[in-house]
Simulated assay, not measured.
Amino acid sequence: HLGSAAEYGPGRPGRRTTESAATRPLGPYGATKLAGTVALTSAGLDAVVLRVGNPVGPGAPATGLPGRVTALLRAAGQGTGTVLPLGDLSAYRDFVDVRDVARAVALALTAPGPLPPVLNIGGGEAVPVRTLVRKLADAAGFRGRIEEDAAGSARSARVSWQCSDITAAARALGWRPVHPLDASVAALWAAGVPARPGPEGERVP
Rank of each mutant, 00 (worst) to 15 (best):
G152D: 04
P13T: 00
A76M: 05
V83P: 04
P199E: 07
A35G: 10
I146K: 04
G9Q: 03
A108I: 01
W161S: 03
L115T: 00
R12P: 03
R68V: 00
A187P: 04
S90D: 11
D149K: 05
N54P: 01
G81Y: 08
W175D: 01
V83Y: 08
S42C: 11
F95Y: 15
R68W: 10
L188M: 07
P55A: 12
D94S: 11
A104N: 06
R158W: 10
V96S: 05
R196A: 15
R15V: 09
P205Y: 15
W189K: 02
V83K: 11
G122V: 04
T41C: 15
E202M: 13
A75Q: 12
A140D: 03
N54F: 14
V133F: 04
A186P: 09
D94M: 12
T37L: 14
W161N: 04
T80I: 01
A71P: 06
G53Y: 11
L115C: 08
L89W: 11
A172N: 06
A6H: 12
A106C: 11
L84W: 10
R16L: 15
V96Y: 08
S160G: 14
A154T: 02
V129Q: 05
V49L: 11
L84G: 07
V101G: 02
E147K: 06
H1Q: 06
A170L: 09
R74W: 11
V178M: 09
Y92C: 13
L72Q: 03
P199Y: 07
K135H: 12
V48I: 02
R15E: 15
T41V: 14
H179W: 14
V69L: 12
G81C: 09
P112D: 07
A91V: 00
V159S: 00
V98G: 14
R158E: 15
V83E: 14
R145K: 13
G123S: 09
H1G: 05
T110I: 00
A39N: 05
P205S: 03
W175F: 14
E147F: 14
L173D: 02
G122K: 05
T63H: 12
R15T: 03
S4I: 02
